[in-house]
Design a protein around this nucleic acid. Structure first.
Lengths: 243, 243
DNA sequence: CGTGCGGTTGATCCGAGTCAAGCCAAGTGG
DNA sequence: CCACTTGGCTTGACTCGGATCAACCGCACG
């Protein structure tokens, strides 16, 4: 069973390049809101959608803003964050390609969506999408499927943040990265997040993240090729450390 | 803005008594999966649903079990919990009347649902509900609305568990209880959970919960009439303590 | 060359967990 | 009726994990 609490993409799901012409473009991606839609419905989706491009660090939506648009991540990744008044920040989840971003019914954004890398999002006016969902059961079903997945991931995060130790959290993250991101020919896995982002995701500080990673290295469980590139040397120990 | 991370019912939503004859019975309840359904669809829901009664402590579903049924809480409350291998437990959320319990697509339960009090659930065979949702857009929309609410609540919990201190968590819980449960004539609010349940919900230990509550009392922020009954004496301070 | 940024490391502190004891109210059985 | 148990809760002493604060390293870049 997966110990992992984070809405990581399925292995390989980030691989397929995007045909530029299509807005929706989620064909073949699992769990996208347009997965398995019949062609005529996809055509409708294309019609009501438009492409929005974000550069690294750009914010798609601010918490508290009124919601007009919702979207579907096409390439790249967004971090969804919320913060407390004094500035403490927490990543609620990461939206990978195929992820749905936004709320269908609530009136304002409850989180901020920021591009972690250059990202394209297929954006719909919320009213358009709601109308389409009301008339096309397949669209509603896709949305349901997507929300179910996200809810499950969010709930795993709750267990994760409520009950796991720092060491278990960091180990889980490494396990996840290993499983979800394609490693290069030498078997090394790139880390797609920097230490601060890992800390925000795991509810820790950068120092703790750094210390734990170095600890795993000293234990011989992983090998740090570079600060953002690692290789797992002892799969079993690592997954045991993950809890 | 609500600081609170827990899927508490809206004020008053627990008030209406259930007409025994109806299975679905969610008319008038906000956010229920059968809210706002037209009569003929409600009739269909009635047809495919059946009532399941749970006594306090009884388990509706175990994590890891295959999913055949999903349900809609009618009266009472369920706690949804997950645990780590070594037994550490975490409440993922509480299902109040109107809440949807189960997963529409995944194959097994990822959490355990246990009745906190005597509870009745309107149970559907999952395949039936999925078929109905596929043919009746209104059903799909209701489910979408419900899942959106739950996802939002779960994400608030993530911020909550990732970044709030023990004191803020307990204060938030008290604020929530105050807002969501009807207080008696003297203005006292009953606590619907015992200390252990609060601890599981907040990701703390019973000792810490107890200490913080007593601390608030000594500070003059609340008055503890009984271990399970309190009155807020200083609303402003309490909500400031909640973060 | 300095400057800034991401990351690492060490020293110290503090919040919350752990362990253990005790309190109180509600049973329960003789 | 009283002795005894039981379970929920509180309290104190102690421990320890992770935050905080501060220094420093390596590297990219103007």
């Amino acid at each position: 069973m997966s110990v992992v609490a984070l809405a990581w993409p399925e292995p390989g799901s980030r691989a397929a390049p995007a045909p530029e012409s299509r807005c929706v473009q989620c064909l073949g991606r699992q769990q996208s809101i347009c997965a398995d839609l019949p062609p005529e419905v996809l055509y409708e989706m294309e019609r009501i959608g438009r492409v929005r491009r974000l550069r690294r660090g750009e914010v798609l939506s601010w918490e508290g803003d009124e919601i007009y648009d919702v979207g579907n991540v096409r390439d790249g990744a967004l971090k969804l964050t919320a913060s407390l008044r004094d500035g403490r920040e927490q990543i609620l989840g990461v939206a990978w390609p195929g992820s749905f971003v936004g709320e269908l019914f609530a009136d304002e954004w409850t989180y901020r969506a920021t591009a972690l890398t250059a990202t394209t999002v297929c954006v719909f006016r919320r009213t358009d999408l709601n109308m389409l969902a009301a008339s096309q059961a397949a669209v509603a079903t896709s949305l349901l499927r997507r929300l179910s997945t996200d809810l499950d991931a969010a709930r795993r995060s709750i267990l994760f943040l409520g009950r796991k130790t720092a060491e278990e959290r960091v180990a889980s993250l490494l396990v996840d990265m290993r499983r979800s991101t394609p490693c290069d020919v030498t078997g090394a896995t790139p880390m797609s997040l920097n230490r601060q982002q890992m800390a925000d995701l795991l509810g820790l500080t950068i120092e703790t993240v750094s210390r734990k990673i170095r600890r795993f290295e000293r234990m011989g469980v992983i090998e740090l090729i570079h600060t953002r590139l690692f290789r797992v040397r002892d799969e079993v120990s690592l997954s045991r450390l993950a809890g």
